[in-house]
Design a protein around this nucleic acid. Structure first.
Length: 340
RNA sequence: GGAAAGUUGUCUGAGUGGUCGAAAGAGCCACACUCGAAAUGUGGUGUACGCAUUACGUCGUACCGGGGGUUCGAAUCCCUCACUUUCCGCCA
């Protein structure tokens, strides 16, 4: 948790424990009061059955104060429970053990750099690298300095200029009908997008992931289920009339399929993938980060979700991580949008 | 959008105010019978929290779609929300 800059991790855990203690104490008091009440009620029933009216009435008279007391104790217990829930919601998921610690994108570590065969430089670098296929095309592990990255023979253009030059994407039309961050893919651009979706889905299918086509709008419980709520409330589009959220990733519906379910270990791993449009408000993004396709309010993404036992997910890095990455062809999620 | 009926344990399905956590059947588990199986018989068979714990729990509370209310007492009455089914309306 400290990796997530969860600085007061220790305090939070301590306070969760303390709140839980308070909750237990409240429950004990409330349970005791309820027990007394139940006993009296029972006795009233018995007295009535015996026709002892007056005694029953007398017993009834005693219950008033007790009832008030129970109400108060119930409120106290509910308050402690709510406090506990809120405290627990503050605790983030534990990051994957290989995730590097860092403050921003610049601290990220490239695990794999891909490149198609632009020409000699890459081909040369590829020699001795097992990741290349017979044609010399493929994914290469970057074991060369960035300055030696392969250079294509043609002039490089940023993607938004390429997209304009070949009329693949019209950003202005997107602004017209929706707003910034909603590009309109046209002709070959649209076909490319569709092809990428197909390609990545096919790869995931090959790796044994079952294709899911979920709703792209979810209820609040699903938002909490995968932790978008309460943390990222402001980043999601919210349809207030129906209290539904547009999904920021297929992870939300595909994972919530199993919310509140206990899965028999024999049925693991569960491997699902899904293509959906994803919606993000991207509040707070600015500048070059949002240029072209870099940050969109709506984009296409293929997500893969694997549900497995803990010893298959984190503990044995080389095994589990390598396996799922290899099976899927890429690490965690595919993004078929034309970024980068 | 309007109306009606419904939502009970793993399943089917009883239960309209007082030992109902909940009948019955099915399923499942154990045992018996059997060479084995089937059939049959007997017993058992929900969850959460709390408490207790060397061990066993004739221990407490809560849960009959969710939430709230009435009552000494609610699966049972009232309100509300969600969902399911059916009908009407509206509309791609």
């Amino acid at each position: 948790m400290e990796k997530k800059h969860f600085n007061d991790a220790h305090d939070t855990i301590e306070s969760v424990i303390a709140i839980d203690q308070a909750r237990k104490a409240a429950q004990q008091k409330k349970d005791a009061a309820s027990a007394e009440m139940n006993q009296i009620s029972k006795s009233i029933g018995a007295l009535m059955a015996q026709g002892k009216r007056e005694e029953a009435e007398a017993a009834k008279a005693k219950t008033g104060e007790l009832k008030e007391n129970i109400k108060a104790l119930e409120a106290e217990m509910a308050a402690e429970e709510e406090k506990l829930t809120q405290a627990l919601l503050q605790i983030p998921n534990v990051p994957y053990s290989i995730v590097p610690e860092g403050k921003g994108a610049e601290d990220n570590v490239a695990v794999k750099v891909g490149g198609w065969n632009f020409g000699e430089p890459l081909k040369k670098l590829a020699e001795g690298n097992r990741s290349f296929d017979a044609d010399g095309n493929g994914i290469a592990l970057r074991d060369w300095p960035a300055s030696e990255d392969p250079q294509p023979a043609f002039a490089k253009l940023p993607h938004w200029e390429l997209a304009k030059k070949y009329n693949l994407i019209d950003f202005d039309l997107g602004v017209k009908i929706s707003g910034a961050g909603f590009p309109v893919y046209i002709g070959q651009g649209a076909r490319l997008q569709r092809a990428l979706i197909n390609f990545f889905l096919a790869e995931a299918n090959k790796a044994g992931y079952t294709e899911i086509m979920p709703p792209t709008v979810v209820n609040q419980a699903s938002g909490y289920g995968t932790g978008q709520l309460p943390d990222k409330e402001g980043q999601m589009y919210h349809c207030e009339v129906d209290d539904l959220y547009l999904i920021p990733t297929a992870e939300v519906p595909v994972t919530n399929l199993y919310r509140d379910e206990i899965i028999d270990e024999a049925n693991l791993p569960i491997k699902n993938c899904a293509y959906t449009e994803c919606f993000r408000r991207e509040a707070g993004s600015y500048g070059k980060d949002v240029r072209g396709l870099n940050r969109l309010h709506e984009f296409s993404k293929i997500e893969i979700v694997r549900i497995d036992t803990p010893d298959h997910s984190d503990a044995s890095d080389a095994g589990a991580r390598g396996r799922s990455a290899a099976e899927a062809g890429v690490a965690v999620s595919y993004s078929p949008s034309l970024r980068r």
